[in-house]
Amino acid sequence: MKKIRKEIISIILLSFLSVNAVCLAQESSVSESDIKVEKKSKKKKKKHKVKLPNIDLSHWKVTLPVANEKGKPYEIEPPEILGFASIKMAQPYMYIDSTRGAIVFHAMPTNSKTRNTKYTRSELREQMEPGNNNVNWTFKDGANMKGELAMDASSRDDEGKYHRTIIMQIHGRLTNEQRDLIGEDDNNAPPILKIYWDKGKIRIKTKVLKDLNATYEELLHEDAWGNDDGFNFEQEVGFRKFTLEVKVSDGKMVVILNNNEFKVYENIHMKKWGIFENYFKAGNYFQSRDEGSFSKVRFYKLEVSH
């Protein structure tokens, strides 16, 4: 009888051990499978989808904050600008952020400054005829520019405030005949519009005529025009993505932020400005000479029409 009991106990123990072994094997198998799935999931997460900015550069040239062999700011015009990503000189200052689908414009103080300014820029200049600065537009012709952009990074001043930069412009230009009439040695005219990223907000500056009775020839001189008091949009954009649109027509200029805030300029100053040719600018015209300062601006989209 005792012998039979021992055999029964032995059989029960063996059965128990067998069941446990099967369970452990199953647990081990599930665990290994889970690990494989998890590893695949992590690999998928590491693979970023390449995104490209929606910007046609065939009618833009860029000015970079670095000097060429003549000591002047380095510029890239069409068609070379279409391959800017492979141009070594451009790579630190204008490059593609393929994770966000944007072109980044990076500027900081250097000894390479454009004429009539103490600041440097990584900024696009519109060329209606690729490679030619002499073909431009007037307010009567009409023009539109729309961009989707964001401040990528910015240094701060001694008070802890972010440095500001100009992200869009409309720049005036003298025709060759106007230049010769007033005896100038270049075609430069004032910018009628400057749009700033200013401590996380969007600020606009424009020009006003000092003497409304000025003659045609007097209007052509840069010192005939002063600065207005400026205008700040209410919304703070910070480092988030936003849209800016500029619409120009005869005697009128409208600036739109995120399709819900508008600033309209329709006055005698806009009418008088009609004598000038103009061109759009967009990018990063950095407004600091502080040592170690910099800013980076991302452009996702940029469109111009006339």
Results as ranks from 00 to 15, higher is better:
Phe231Cys: 09
Arg203Ile: 08
Val237Tyr: 00
Lys252Ile: 13
Tyr265Leu: 14
Lys272Asp: 00
Asn213Arg: 10
Leu212Pro: 00
Asn187His: 08
Leu212Phe: 11
Phe239Thr: 10
Leu219Glu: 09
Asn227Val: 08
Lys271Gln: 15
His269Val: 04
Lys199Tyr: 02
Asn227Trp: 14
Ile192Arg: 01
Thr206Gly: 04
Leu209Gly: 02
Asn188Met: 12
Met270Ala: 05
Asp223Ile: 13
Gln235Thr: 15
Ile268Ser: 14
Arg203Met: 09
Leu244Val: 12
Glu218Gly: 00
Asp198Met: 07
Met253Val: 11
Glu277Met: 11
Trp197Pro: 02
Ala214Pro: 04
Lys247Asn: 15
Ile192Asp: 07
Ile204Leu: 14
Lys247Val: 08
Leu193Phe: 08
Ile195Arg: 07
Asn213Phe: 11
Lys241Glu: 10
Lys194Met: 12
Lys205Glu: 09
Glu266Gln: 15
Asp211Pro: 04
Lys207Leu: 12
Trp197Val: 03
Lys210Glu: 12
Ile192Leu: 13
Leu219Phe: 02
Asp198Tyr: 06
Asn227Ile: 01
Glu236Met: 10
Asn188Gln: 13
Glu222Ala: 14
Asp186Arg: 05
Tyr265Ile: 09
Asn260Leu: 07
Lys199Thr: 03
Lys263Pro: 04
Tyr265Arg: 13
Lys194Val: 00
Ile256Val: 15
Leu244Ala: 00
Ile195Tyr: 04
Ile202Asp: 00
Thr206Val: 01
Ile204Lys: 04
Asn227Asp: 15
Asp250Leu: 11
Ile256Cys: 03
Ile195Lys: 06
Asn227Gly: 11
Lys271Thr: 15
Glu245Lys: 14
Glu184Val: 01
Glu222Val: 12
His269Asp: 15
Thr215Lys: 01
Glu245Ser: 14
Asp211Ile: 05
Met253Trp: 00
Lys271Ala: 09
His269Ala: 06
Asn267Gly: 08
Ile192Gln: 01
Arg203Phe: 10
Gly238Ala: 10
Lys205Ser: 08
Val254Gly: 05
Thr206Glu: 07
Lys241Val: 05
Trp225Asp: 05
Pro190Phe: 11
Met270Phe: 10
Ile275Ala: 02
Glu245Asn: 12
Leu219Gln: 11
Asp223Pro: 07
Leu220Met: 13
Glu277Ser: 10
Ile256Asp: 07
Phe276Arg: 01
Asn259Tyr: 11
Glu222Leu: 13
Tyr196Ser: 03
Phe262Ser: 12
Asp229Thr: 13
His221Cys: 13
Phe239Cys: 02
Phe233Thr: 03
Met253Thr: 05
Asp250Glu: 15
Ala214His: 08
Lys271Ile: 14
Asn227Arg: 09
His269Met: 02
Thr215Asn: 04
Glu217Ala: 11
Gly226Pro: 03
Asp185Trp: 12
Pro190Glu: 07
Asp211Lys: 14
Thr215Phe: 01
Lys241Gln: 13
Lys252His: 12
Asn213His: 05
Leu244Pro: 04
Ile195Met: 05
Val264Leu: 13
Glu217Leu: 01
Asn259Ser: 14
Glu245Asp: 12
Leu193Asn: 04
Phe239His: 07
Asn259Pro: 02
Thr215Gln: 08
Tyr265Phe: 15
Arg203Gly: 03
Thr243Leu: 08
